[in-house]
Design a protein around this nucleic acid. Structure first.
Lengths: 343, 343
DNA sequence: CTTCAAAATGATTGCGCTATCATTCGGTGA
DNA sequence: TCACCGAATGATAGCGCAATCATTTTGAAG
């Protein structure tokens, strides 16, 4: 029987080159290779070149897993958004990555959906990667999530919402204020009988609350609400728009996203309703296509890229520091009501 | 001077609980805790409960960085797309994550843009994380990238393109075939004088080549091309559309994305051109809003979600296996030409 | 040609976990 | 009752790297 190499079977699976291999080829100590690669200013030009040559020769690719363990800095930033299938959040992802990638950080993307349970699960696995920082959409979390995040002692930005008591940093806007602004806009135009189509999403719900509060102040105004599942889509908008229009005479329909509003436009057109005279329609998000619909959609613009950039910038300024201490910074980037041709 | 604790300063920064801490609290060996958490079937019910209790008590969160180093399995899948600010790729991301997250894999997102240089840079840093698998958009890579990926010996799916010689697995569609199909469709409708607006993107360029080849077969057809920068946008479409319409009389304008096509529609409408009688317009991607424009946009539908799901599924089947061996599987998911009201 | 501080390099150790043994425990049949 | 076997648990070592300190080399001044 062949028990010759049974004893000291090496554990490493990947045959790829290690720091040690490079060091041997370069004829220097492993530590010198490490320095040549990570802090070249500490190394003579000539050794740097020897190492460089050895790296090419061996095809060495540093193992950041090992590096992360040794330094307890993972170089990973967790970015948690409900979805990327929504232009608004895609914009945020794009902006955050645009800032972080050039600084050597990599982004671990997590989709938390719109339910606390999913958020909890994602947060747990994300924390097990020991990210250097976290960007988290929303600021209404389950107590367990709050506790885990607090314990983790990691720089954190909550985005896309507003609160008085952020876990750490907060960059976003007030959803009730959006609803209120929409209400004021539509009331000023003389609309009184409203329909609302909203996704099953707590932030959308708070926009609706703000809207209701706004119209509640004018006697004679009324409002019917329909909820749709996620993801929002044109067919959902059209279906629920039809339901609303069949239920009661309406002056305006407010939607929790532009894509729903497009569905309502389609339904209104199919019924021969004049927009906005017989039916006004309001979206949310100012997606790239909002100005291209016919008629052009009135909506609320959120600058997702600005939120993403600000989040990344604030985190980066914290990542330089050594110890962790809660920041408490709050930045309200606001929103813009864009009045096009549907209101 | 206080040199009392200078000597053996502990290296660990984070004060968070380790496996050892849990073991001490539970009164078992660290290895038993590891087993209780990762392979509970190897452990008595009673110890499992002791460990569970100790985990809660200590607030232990496993350190997957250390775990990855010990097992040389990172649990990370790298997902490299040009951008997420484009609905098509966002759909892919969403689908891939939808399959992988429930299986315990986390996604490291990389944006490679549309230039080989950026791809190279991203690939290098990505490989340093030792991902268990890679999903990579496109299959035209620089020699350096190809070599690095080959050496990495990691299950890999190239998506969103077609080739005879994939690095490992390939799931996508043929871009020239898309161009050809569009040409045939438009020629059949009687259009002969074409304009093309295309992003500066090699895959779009190959669609254009296919298109040119298609119209080249019909005598008397001609074609003017205008290129736009990334990201594509409505204003780009409108501007280049105007340029084209000013340059020569055209029957149809073909765009490398739906959003450009919307810009062309806007320009055509502003000039009072009847669509499609005086100007036909063709998009690409069948974005959610394509059917909502007025007139509804003719376009080419790509099922990004199907590609993403297939990619994830194929990778998962490989991740079970032990050794690495190149697969060579190729899957062409095709595309659908959607004939709406602009052609 | 020394001397000495600063710069460059090297040796050692540990980050937190799990693979891989070795050991102990509990139950079974003679 | 005791040897025996598989199941459960424990001890040890190492994954690949960088922090830290020890040692060597360099170069400027005397």
């Amino acid at each position: 029987m062949s028990d010759d190499n049974d004893r000291t079977r090496p554990r490493r699976a990947s045959g790829s080159a290690r720091l040690t291999d490079v060091a041997r080829v370069a004829g220097v100590a492993p530590m010198t290779v490490s320095r040549a690669l990570n802090r070249p200013e500490l190394v003579t030009e000539s050794t740097r070149q020897k190492v460089q040559k050895a790296v090419l020769e061996t095809g060495y690719v540093p193992n950041r897993v090992a590096g992360a363990l040794a330094t307890s800095r993972s170089g990973l930033v967790a970015l948690l958004v409900p979805t990327v299938a929504h232009a608004l959040f895609a914009e945020v992802v794009q902006a955050v990555m645009g800032e972080l990638t050039p600084r050597g950080y990599q982004v671990m993307l997590g989709l938390v959906g719109y339910t606390p349970a999913q958020e909890e699960a994602v947060i747990e696995t994300v924390l097990s990667r020991r990210p250097d920082a976290i960007v988290l959409t929303g600021c209404r979390h389950s107590p367990l999530t709050r506790e885990r995040l607090t314990r983790a002692q990691v720089p954190l930005v909550e985005i896309w919402d507003m609160s008085d008591d952020p876990l750490d940093m907060l960059i976003g806007f007030s959803h009730p204020a959006v609803g209120l602004a929409v209400a004021e806009h539509l009331l000023a135009r003389g609309y009184r009988r409203f329909g609302v189509i909203t996704a099953d999403d707590s932030r959308a719900a708070r926009r609706v609350e703000g809207f209701m509060a706004g119209i509640g102040e004018i006697a004679g105004s009324e409002c019917l609400v329909r909820e749709v599942g996620t993801p929002s889509s044109m067919p959902w908008g059209r279906e629920k728009g039809a339901e609303l229009l069949d239920s009661a005479p309406l002056d305006a329909i407010v939607c929790s996203s532009d894509i729903l509003a497009l569905g309502v436009i389609a339904e209104a057109q199919s019924r021969g309703l004049a927009i906005p005279d017989e039916l006004a329609i309001m979206g949310f998000g100012d997606s790239s296509y909002a100005g291209a619909s016919f008629p052009a959609l009135s909506t609320v613009r959120i600058d997702g890229a600005a939120i993403g950039r600000a989040a990344a910038t604030h985190l980066l300024s914290r990542l330089g520091q050594s110890g962790f201490s809660r920041s408490g910074d709050i930045l309200d980037v606001g929103f813009t009501l864009i009045d096009r041709d549907t209101t």
